[in-house]
Computed example of a mutant assay.
Amino acid sequence: MIRVLIADDQDLVRGALAALLGTEDDLEVVAEVGRGDEVVEAVREHRVDVALLDIEMPGMTGIEAAEALQSVQSVQTSQGFPCRTVIVTTFGRPGYLRKALGAGVSGFVVKDTPPSQLAEAVRRVHQGLRVVDPALAEESLFTPDSPLTAREMEVCRAARGGTGIREIAAELHLSQGTVRNHLSSVIGKTGASNRFEAVTVADQNGWL
């Protein structure tokens, strides 16, 4: 049996994935968590073979959780092989795919993947193979790497949801003028007409 963990902050999604995978004779969902920072401990406790991780979760993103698993050498299955990870997300963006692969993720699929294909992805990843959504893999070939600096990405993340300049400056301990300069640079790099559009473009490309 392949022992599977599902990490997603939506109860309904976790339940649906568990039910779908539970119909497979060779797959067993042994753990479900709703936070990214619960993944490593759950993998340890339940001797997980393959962890299915959402990207956006409280505590830690799925990509950060995958990195944490990579860094914890003692996280192993009873057979002595490391737990492998698959990102299962609605955010099918090339930037996220690059980040995930850089974090050591073995698979990247979107949530509307047919159940049979998801189950097969788990099997292939468990065998040591890599599985990536083909449409996303093709798109990533034509999407440029992020042109944003680390500070610009930080400002953009803080600006999500229409947060004002003053609030962003207070949150990041920057002057309002510095925040405006960073946002102006992001607008130029994304070709957007305003900061709201610039943040949207950066987010949709998976740069944040």
Rank of each mutant, 00 (worst) to 15 (best):
V109E: 01
F91V: 08
A137R: 11
V132I: 15
K99H: 08
V86E: 10
V122L: 08
P114A: 02
Q127A: 15
V131N: 01
A137E: 14
Q79C: 07
G128L: 12
T113G: 01
A68T: 05
L118W: 07
P82H: 01
L118G: 08
A137H: 10
L101F: 06
T113I: 14
G128K: 03
C83Y: 07
D112R: 10
R93Y: 07
Q79S: 14
T90E: 13
L136I: 01
V122K: 07
S106V: 09
Y96Q: 06
K99Q: 13
R124I: 03
P134C: 11
A119K: 00
D133Y: 05
V125A: 02
P94L: 05
V132F: 10
A137W: 03
G102L: 05
V75S: 11
S74W: 10
S116W: 04
S71H: 13
V110P: 08
V131K: 04
V131C: 01
V88C: 05
L97C: 09
G80S: 03
T77D: 08
L69V: 05
V72Q: 14
V132L: 13
V105W: 03
A135E: 15
S78F: 12
A103F: 05
A137T: 08
L118R: 01
V125N: 05
A135R: 13
I87F: 09
C83W: 05
P82V: 05
G107H: 03
T85D: 07
A119V: 03
G107S: 00
P134F: 11
S71Q: 14
L136P: 06
T77M: 02
E120C: 03
P115C: 06
S71V: 10
G95S: 08
G92V: 06
Q117T: 12
V72A: 15
Q79R: 12
V109W: 00
R98N: 07
A119L: 05
Q79F: 10
T90V: 15
G95V: 00
L97W: 03
K111A: 09
A137G: 02
V110G: 06
E67G: 14
I87V: 15
A100T: 03
R93D: 02
G80V: 01
C83D: 08
F91M: 14
P134T: 06
